[in-house]
Design a protein around this nucleic acid. Structure first.
Length: 260
DNA sequence: ATGACTTGAGCATCAAGA
């Protein structure tokens, strides 16, 4: 089963770019971030036509996550547990059933956190604590699970074109990376890194200052696998070519092939 | 260089992104 994560930066502006990529890449499941739409306004038809079930967790203007799946989605859960007052739409979970096994899938859009320090950075760190708690619960269930999406975390120096330029940024601060590694170190596998050890493998390039042609990117979209899911990993790649097309998102898709 | 682009909201500009 081919499962992808893709921060699309606005579903209404990205329908053509997304459907073109779906038709080529033929993923079974796509976790989308930054749909920037309320649920009622999400354009379902292009995805219905292609055989995808659509589950959304949106809000007006910003954030918002969704799952597109050619397989049925069960037990859909919206919102990251741990703070009833949090109104930002950044988490969606569902179970997808494969040929041999079922997989618990979590699509996430982790807060950016800039400027740091400040209230936005406090929110990011608090959100990451809730993420760690959810990750522990998923591991305790001992079923295959994947948490994938836009983490807004640059894990290591080799994941950024110029580490020096990012050292005060909320995506790369030591506290941010430590919080990310605390989650990984519970027993998750960074699917891309176990399949590709090369530096400078990016998933985001800013629209500004010719970042893409200069390859001034960062790797912030990640797919973390529980031990049971890691045993199913066949491949993981970044579809960076589509950053070259008309009206691209500033992120590109990352996908895994799982023997599920 | 706190710049440059892009999106959504909503109709002139501004917030937010990373």
């Amino acid at each position: 089963m081919k499962i992808a994560t893709f921060n699309i930066n606005g579903i209404k502006a990205r329908v053509t770019a997304l459907t073109d990529w779906l038709d080529e890449a033929q993923p079974d499941v796509v976790l989308c971030q930054e749909i920037k739409s309320v649920d009622e306004a999400f354009p379902r038809e292009p995805f219905d036509e292609r055989g995808y079930n659509v589950e959304t967790h949106g809000q007006k203007g910003f954030n918002g996550v969704a799952i597109l799946s050619k397989h049925p989605l069960e037990d859909v859960m919206r919102g990251l547990p741990g703070d009833e007052t949090d109104e930002q739409a950044r988490w969606i979970e569902a179970t997808v059933v494969g040929e041999h096994d079922a997989l618990r899938l979590c699509g996430l859009y982790l807060p950016n956190g800039n400027p740091a320090p400040g209230p936005k950075y406090d929110y990011k760190l608090a959100w990451m604590e809730r993420l760690e708690a959810r990750a522990r619960a998923l591991l305790a269930a001992e079923m295959p699970a994947m948490m994938a999406g836009d983490y807004n975390v640059i894990p290591q120096p080799e994941d950024v074109h110029d580490p020096k330029a990012w050292e005060d940024d909320a995506l790369y601060l030591p506290q941010t990376r430590a919080a990310f590694h605390r989650v990984v170190n519970l027993g998750f596998t960074d699917a891309f890194r176990v399949r590709n050890a090369a530096p400078a493998q990016y998933t985001f390039w800013d629209y500004q200052a010719n970042a893409w042609p200069r390859n001034k990117g960062i790797r912030i979209d990640h797919m973390l696998l529980s031990p049971q899911a890691a045993d199913m990993l066949v491949d993981c790649r970044i579809d960076k070519e589509i950053r070259d097309r008309d009206k691209p998102s500033d992120h590109v898709p990352v996908w895994v092939e799982l023997d599920l």
